[in-house]
C-alpha cells in the first residue's frame, strides 16, 4: 500500500514537471537558420531527393558513423556475453506450424528484396540504410522462427559486417581526399536529380550501412536464439 502511494506521488511529480512543456507548447512557425540552409541548399548541393537522407548521410554523416559504431559495440557485447560452447546433447526442438513454414517460404524472399529496395532508394524515398537493414534482419528472424534446423553461417555474417563497415569508412576518407570533407558524397557524379544513380556516393554509403546494420542485428538475434537451448 505504501509502495503504491509512493508510485502515485512520483507520477504526480513527473506530471508537474512535464505540465509546462504541454501547456506552453507553441509550434514553430519558421525553420531555424541551420534547417533553412539545409532545406534551401540541400537538394541542389547534394542531389538527394530525400532531404532527411542528405542530412543523415552527409551533413551529419559523422554522427551516423558514431551510431553505427554504437550498434557494432552492442552487437559485440551481446555476442561476448552469450558466447557458449556448442553442447552435444541437443534436445529435439518442436517444429513450427505448417502455416508459418509455408508463409515464410513465400514471404522471406519478398522481405529481403524489400529491405534491399529500402536502402538502395534511401536517397529517393523515405527510409535508408538503417531501416533497410532492420527489415532484412526481421526477415531472417522469420526464417529462424519457422525452421528449427535453420543455421546462419556466422563467418559470412562477420565478413559482410566487417567489409561493409570498412568500406563505409573508406568512402568517407575518399570524400576527404577527392571532395571537400569526410563523408562528402560529391566525389562521384551527382547525376540526374531523382534517379536511382544520383546523389553521388549516398546510395553506396547507404548500401554499406544497410548491409552492416542487417548483419549486426541478425548476429544479435542469432546469438540469442542459440542461447535458448
Amino acid at each position: 500500500m505504501v509502495k503504491k502511494i509512493f508510485i502515485v506521488i512520483i507520477l504526480g511529480f513527473f506530471a508537474v514537471m512535464l505540465l509546462p512543456l504541454a501547456k506552453d507548447f507553441t509550434p514553430f512557425q519558421e525553420l531555424s537558420p541551420v534547417a533553412e540552409k539545409y532545406v534551401e541548399d540541400g537538394p541542389e548541393e547534394l542531389g538527394s531527393a530525400n532531404l532527411v537522407t542528405s542530412v543523415i548521410v552527409t551533413y551529419r554523416g559523422l554522427d551516423t558513423l558514431g551510431e553505427v559504431a554504437v550498434l557494432f559495440i552492442a552487437a559485440a557485447g551481446v555476442g561476448f556475453f552469450l558466447r557458449k560452447e556448442e553442447k552435444g546433447d541437443k534436445t529435439p526442438k518442436r517444429g513450427s506450424s505448417q502455416i508459418l513454414q509455408s508463409g515464410t517460404a513465400f514471404l522471406f524472399p519478398l522481405i529481403l528484396a524489400f529491405g534491399v529496395y529500402i536502402f538502395l532508394h534511401g536517397h529517393l524515398t523515405p527510409g535508408g540504410g538503417f531501416q533497410g537493414g532492420v527489415v532484412i534482419a526481421s526477415g531472417m528472424v522469420l526464417l529462424l522462427l519457422s525452421s528449427a534446423s535453420a543455421k546462419i553461417n556466422e563467418n559470412v555474417l562477420h565478413l559482410v559486417e566487417s567489409l561493409s563497415g570498412a568500406s563505409y569508412v573508406a568512402i568517407g576518407i575518399l570524400g576527404l581526399v577527392l571532395a571537400t570533407g569526410f563523408l562528402d558524397n560529391r566525389f562521384l557524379d551527382l547525376g540526374e536529380f531523382g534517379t536511382l544513380l544520383s546523389a553521388g556516393a549516398i546510395p553506396l554509403i547507404y548500401s554499406f550501412i544497410g548491409l552492416k546494420v542487417g548483419a549486426e542485428l541478425v548476429g544479435i538475434v542469432n546469438n540469442m536464439q542459440k542461447d535458448q537451448s
Binding site: N50, V52, I118, P126, G127, G128, F130, Q131, V134, V135, S138
Partner: peptide
C-alpha cells in the same frame, strides 16, 4: 523515416 524505424 522515423515511422519505419519504429515499426521495425
Amino acid at each position: 523515416d522515423v515511422a519505419m524505424t519504429e515499426a521495425a
